[in-house]
Amino acid sequence: MIPFEYRRAADAQEAVATVAARPDAVFLGGGTNLVDHMKLGVAAPHMLVDVSRLPLTEVEETPGGGLRVGAAVRNSDLAAHPLVRQRYPALARALLSGASGQLRNTATTGGNLLQRTRCRYFQDVTTPCNKREPGSGCAAIGGWDRHHAVLGASEHCIAVHPSDMAVGLLALDATVHVLGADGARSLPLADLHRLPGDSPERDTVLAHGELITAVELPPASAMTRWSTYRKVRERASYAFALVSVAAALDVDDDSGVVRDARVALGGVAHKPWRAGRAEDVLRGAPATEESFRLAAGAELAAAEVRDGNAYKVPLARNTIVAVLRDLTEARR
């Protein structure tokens, strides 16, 4: 860890102005990922601007009936919030399946979205990594690729995004509010994270100095109230997803036909993956296991696998089918 300066921002504007003015400054939220990276030498900022105590800690209903979540809301508080539990169970479940109780007590909403890949090679400064050191190569390609991407990867990076929360939020069509030196803007969560392409060092579309201030969920519906999240992992807790699925279904009770569907995947790509192709297949199809299998197949048709991660394709397929089946059965 290199010597660094620490500042506690008085408000969001000051935080943004401070970081935007210095290329070697970064925001500090819960620190559960950044501090590790500083110890490992993966990140070497000379200034930390602490935004965890900014007044961004409220979960509020919006006038339109949605939910606005401050960026500094702790993961455990968000998971326990009654409105989240009632209206957006996929989000509550995604949050509770992440990390450990101690980490969830510290990790923030904004920080969770911006956490970086747990690719081992990214975290080891003695190995090449295009994400950590652009142009140095990718040690994961041809290396230990068990946890790596099967969708949307590039020849420069095959890392996956580790967040559970983001996958839940993505299925719920969340919006991200951002404050930059030039003012505030909003963007769909689906547009926040990037695929690696030839610049895997950039995880998101945010510019240096842009601060996530809130995440907003659209008004709840019957569908979001029945949403769910399933994380497949090797041990019962405290493990990243091999594959995860957030989903919601709106099925016509009379005809048994799917009116609308939301499916998002975790553990398969450089970003939380919205399964648009699967959703297209589901809309208008009967809510049967066969449809679910076809939908999963449509989404995974583009998958490209490597030695160690080929299992993710059948695993994602089975998990999508199982989650949609459980949602359908739970509504009966």
Partner: peptide, 19 residues
């Protein structure tokens, strides 16, 4: 490289309490 790749308890899994 002869490197131990998963050299921490995040990726070297042991049974957690829930297991």
């Amino acid at each position: 490289t002869g490197q131990v790749v998963n050299d921490d308890l995040a990726d070297y899994h042991i049974a957690a309490h829930a297991d």
